[in-house]
């Protein structure tokens, strides 16, 4: 199991916004999380990413109990194990495409060979995502579809065990969306990871093997 939530409760103040009795996700599952806005999707993602901490219960990610970690340990956990993709504005405008992809490496102390390996991997990802010609360009020159692919490459760079994506295709057209999905699943084929994919676009369900209706799962009355 890559994710186990038991009696999980999270509240910003007194009223809980997320309450999950039990949720178990097997390793390398591709999970489609859906539900209307306000049903706690963002909260769940922030909890899994370790940016927020649960109030009570258990949340075990990749065999690590998140509620036992300090906030900096959760940050380190995120850097080591997770890859994140957002809806948009994933990229730092003042960095080149390559620098944006290599961004996760700045938090690591890397020796020469490791750095070489990562650069190699970045180049590899860029090639597979069809972004070679944009390598040194500013990310501002990219289309939305290309920007999301760069974000994908960055999320994949450190070969994370889990990818968390928050509506990464909602600002893309149909062609770009399917391109994005196909590339993501190709990567999954190469080296599988657990995928938590939040979206309200039901058409995307076909790409996933687990469908999670968060509105049903969440017992908190919002």
């Amino acid at each position: 199991m890559d994710l186990i939530a038991k009696n999980l409760v999270f509240a910003y103040d007194k009223n809980p916004v997320l309450k999950i009795a039990l949720l178990e996700i097997k390793a390398h599952s591709k999970v489609f999380v859906y539900g209307p806005s306000g049903c706690g999707k963002s909260t769940l993602l922030n909890l899994c990413a370790g940016v927020l901490a649960i109030n009570s219960g258990e949340l075990k990610l990749l065999n690590t109990e998140m509620s036992l970690l300090s906030s900096t340990s959760r940050d380190r956990f995120r850097a080591q194990n997770l890859g994140l993709i957002f809806q948009q504005f994933n990229l730092l405008p003042y960095l080149s495409v390559m620098e944006n992809i290599m961004l996760p490496s700045i938090l690591k102390k890397l020796d020469g060979t490791e750095k070489n390996r990562l650069e190699h991997r970045a180049h590899d990802l860029i090639k597979r995502l069809g972004l070679e010609t944009f390598l040194k360009r500013s990310v501002m020159d990219l289309s939305l579809g290309q920007q999301q692919r760069v974000a994908q490459a960055r999320a994949l760079l450190m070969s994370p065990k889990m990818i968390i994506a928050d509506e990464p295709t909602s600002s893309l057209d149909e062609k770009n969306t399917s391109e994005f999905m196909n590339l993501l699943l190709e990567e999954w084929q190469v080296s599988p990871f657990t995928l938590l994919f939040v979206s309200h676009d039901q058409r995307l369900k076909k790409y996933f093997d687990v469908h999670l209706n968060l509105e049903e799962l969440n017992e908190a009355k919002v």
Partner: peptide, 11 residues
């Protein structure tokens, strides 16, 4: 938010 997502701590 981007820097946080790649694992940067608030510190």
């Amino acid at each position: 938010a981007i820097l946080r997502s790649i694992g940067m701590s608030v510190g």
